[in-house]
Amino acid sequence: MTVYLLCLVLFLIGVYCILVKRNLIKIIIGLAISEYAVNLFLILAGYRMRGRAPIFSGDQAVANMVDPLPQALVLTAIVIGLGSTALLITLAVRLYEKYGTFDITRIRELRG
């Protein structure tokens, strides 16, 4: 249970970063951290104590695998996360080019 709590703490660090920081890159970093925490949480929920990786091998009699379903879903989530992060960074670079700053409060003041 402590593992879940530590994972939640990691998620909350990311959320805190998104809410409080004013720098666009910092906000992207916060999003990435909370994404890592959610991925890790799903894998933790599917872990079986002393289980083995979900790959069939010769000795099929032993079947105490970890849960493969969260792993499959998180696999797609990681790649989607990369795509969305790239899109966010592109937006940030575009904003920097237009306003010359990453600070969202100053971008708001500069408007137009």
């Binding site: 894998i43 872990y47 990786a53 998180v74 696999l75 790649v79």
Partner: peptide
């Protein structure tokens, strides 16, 4: 460590 080698590879390169 959590026995998810597919994810480990993908996370590393991503």
């Amino acid at each position: 460590v959590l026995k998810a080698p597919d994810l480990a590879i993908t996370q590393l390169v991503v």
